[in-house]
Design a protein around this nucleic acid. Structure first.
Lengths: 236, 236
DNA sequence: CGATAACTTGAAGTTCGTCAATATCCGTGG
DNA sequence: CCACGGATATTGACGAACTTCAAGTTATCG
């Protein structure tokens, strides 16, 4: 059943956008690993916190439905969204070795998470530890890829990269990759992309003006994926 | 000896600069865990690669001496330094679940790394898996903290943050926290801080002009730590 | 249906990047 | 040991991209 536990099969993933990323294998495996267990489920409404930074860390959470964001704050009030999380993603892995959470996790709409009793499963459930390790390493690679993007791309390219990446993830979840419904506000999106919300709005308008996308508030239709990819290659 | 294996003791760490960070406990524990084992050691000279992105991942590496950088590249030639690594840091954890490395690891000067046969130790060495998990989670928190810094601080504040953070790390390694010897070029530093090397040079000169630091090429003496911290608080 | 939040758009301002010239260091070889 | 050349670092002037401030529009929720 899990004889492949020790044999990683994929080569290093290219940063973002690579359709067949390494995320699916892992997260699907985790979901199926856990699906039999009687896990506590928590439903949340928009803006509800799964946990706050500083709260004692009891368990991990697996996102089963809905969209979430994780946010890091500093003493002097600066804030940054560290990622948008969706079905199959884990909330709380960043503080797996700590007594309390190091970030906030907030629902962006209605959602459901499964409480995972880590300590028990690490010993009792074969393959679970491997999943955890994979999820952690995956998060690191994902963070690094975004750091690279933020460091080297201009505002337009960042937005395009985000949209195309989001499309890939939506497709992975079984939705259309052309018709995106952003769950986050412009402010959240801007924060994640290290831009001002006005800049994001302007870029979206500009992309629409060129016929690359169709924007209606938080609904975004991708009209010309090739054209968007061209923007990333620098061939304006 | 290691009865504390299952009890995380620290609360969530504040981003950067917090002197008593969570890194030391972990890395020291890993070093002592491994110190008895007959590990393969590799000495490297400046600019030598520990591994390249894409190479098959055989083992992990523990930095025992010297300084290293890890770099992520993209197909179109963009590059970003994901971190500077020193004694006690692990090289290669980011691809723990993959068959090949996802980044480069390069020596910045003479150095030594220990080859860690992960698969064997994960089963055979009690406490090792916990160390790995802690190192992974630690890397995520560190990455997030830098993302926050890069997203919210201006050029001057970024450089100051880096210097103060570097000082803390040097002190942890037993060196003076006032007298820093940067092992990386201005270009590397700029890359890591998402700035241009000219900007870094200018900022360093400006800080020196105000008497906050003393710059001599790669030797930097911290003259007024309080003044530097004030810059971060926004009270110019 | 009104009020508040979310978003869009414009104009002015600032920081940082770009280009270019110069200076300094360091290793190599004469 | 010194001289030379390439790498590394500093400094200046200019311009561009993004931010800031402000006003106006459109949704959303009580």
């Amino acid at each position: 059943m899990f004889d492949a536990a020790e044999s990683p099969t994929e080569s290093a993933p290219s940063p973002l956008l690579c359709a067949g990323g390494s995320q699916p294998a892992t997260s699907h495996r985790l979901e199926s690993l856990l699906s039999g267990l009687p896990l506590q489920r928590r439903r949340l409404r928009s803006r509800q916190y799964v946990f706050h930074a500083g709260q004692p860390r009891q368990h991990l959470y697996l996102v089963h439905a809905g969209f979430f964001k994780t946010c890091l704050g500093s003493e002097d009030g600066r804030e940054r969204i560290t990622g948008f999380r969706m079905r199959g993603d884990l909330l709380g892995i960043d503080s797996l070795d700590l007594a309390s959470h190091s970030c906030d996790a907030v629902a962006l709409d209605f959602g459901e998470v499964w409480e995972i009793p880590v300590a028990q499963l690490q010993n009792g459930l074969p393959g679970f530890q491997e999943c955890l390790t994979a999820a952690l390493a995956n998060e690191i690679r994902r963070d690094w890829s975004w750091m690279l993007a933020l460091a080297t791309l201009n505002a337009e390219q960042r937005v395009v990269t985000f949209l195309l990446d989001f499309a890939v993830q939506m497709e992975r979840l079984g939705f259309s990759p052309r018709c995106l419904l952003l769950r986050m506000s412009r402010a959240d999106l801007a924060n994640f992309l290290s831009l001002q919300l006005e800049t994001v709005a302007r870029v979206l308008s500009r992309l629409q003006g060129r016929g690359l996308i169709d924007v209606a508030r938080r609904e975004i239709r991708i009209e010309d994926r090739a054209g968007m990819l061209a923007l990333l290659s620098g061939l304006h």
